[in-house]
Simulated scan of single mutants.
Amino acid sequence: MFKKIAVIGAGSWGTALAISLSNKGHNVKIWDINEEHIKELEENRENKRYLPGIKFCDNLRTAENIQEAIKDVDIVLFSAPAQHFRNAFENALPYLKPEMVLINVAKGIEQKTLMRLSEIAFEKLPDAKYVVLSGPSHAEEVGLAMPTTVVSASNDLKLAEYIQDVFMTERLRVYTNLDVIGVELGGALKNIIALGAGISDGMGFGDNAKAAMMTRGITEISRLGVKLGAKIETFSGLSGLGDLIVTCTSMHSRNRRCGIMIGEGKKPKDAIKEVGMVVEGMFTTEAAYELAKKAGVEMPITECIYNVINEKIDAKEAVNNLMTRQKKHETEIFF
């Protein structure tokens, strides 16, 4: 049965999912806090700013305000950047009804509070029917209906399966998972490693360096995740290793592109400006660095990237610091 769905946030990922859902037959309304952007979407019937060339079908309409977007829907999908998720959720809160299923697709950790996005949602709405959708999924490819796999995660398996059915198409395959903590952390923390992979590329290093960055990166992601209550097997899945691979290797990745420019010698703030869109890894690095200290978990790659983007050390010094660390046993994950 087709559903009524509101999409809050009309960036590239929110638009791509809105296109996929509406093409499947669902009735979708999309809204964004940027009024001018919404007017452009309605006028052009495509997102020329973030996802050009992909036309909207008749099932995808824009909404003038958040109340209009959410009114009488079955599902509310939040696609605001991670650092704006709290504000988006609070704006929607007066119009949410208990029977609505809430999905979040942003990947990040809130700065200052160090909260995962589901923690923010449950703080505001303890009985929320909440699902996380994550995985290796560039908006540009989903919008074009290229084969993609993602994971639907919830503390309630029936909810995860419900969203699985809503999103599944011949080109978008959805798996389920009960490990919300692991799925959220995998999706957020891989952006840090993608920055590092980009820095490595920008410095002219080869495949060996990138493979090392990715492999040791997933190790420290897993280390923090397990300490915070996640299941280690989640980090071998779509929202862990899968998302890490795609974000570290693709030029669709804003985090990798930003890292490349930093590795080439650009100032971090100038690299962000040149990317022209939100680089979640810059915020997540700050939050993860603090979270790791608070949890007493060693995350050497995260620490080095934190120091580079805050201009405490340069990229060459970061490489030296990582390569000359005290020798370790490879599977010494939790020590």
Rank of each mutant, 00 (worst) to 15 (best):
R86I: 05
I38K: 11
C57A: 02
E42C: 11
L77P: 01
K39I: 15
E90C: 11
E99K: 13
Q67P: 01
I70V: 15
F85R: 02
D32C: 12
E40V: 05
K48C: 06
I70F: 07
R61Q: 14
E35R: 12
I103T: 09
K97E: 15
C57T: 11
K39W: 06
I103A: 03
N87C: 03
F56D: 07
A69Y: 04
K71N: 13
P52W: 05
E90G: 02
A69L: 10
S20P: 00
N23D: 12
I103C: 13
S22I: 10
E36I: 12
P94C: 12
I54Y: 00
G53Y: 11
F78Q: 06
R61E: 14
D58P: 04
A92I: 09
L21M: 14
A69R: 10
H84S: 11
W31E: 02
L41E: 07
N34M: 13
L77V: 13
L60H: 10
K97H: 08
E35Y: 04
I70N: 09
A92N: 08
K24M: 04
L77I: 13
V76T: 08
Q83S: 07
T62P: 02
I30R: 01
C57F: 03
V101I: 15
K55N: 11
K29F: 10
N87G: 08
D32H: 09
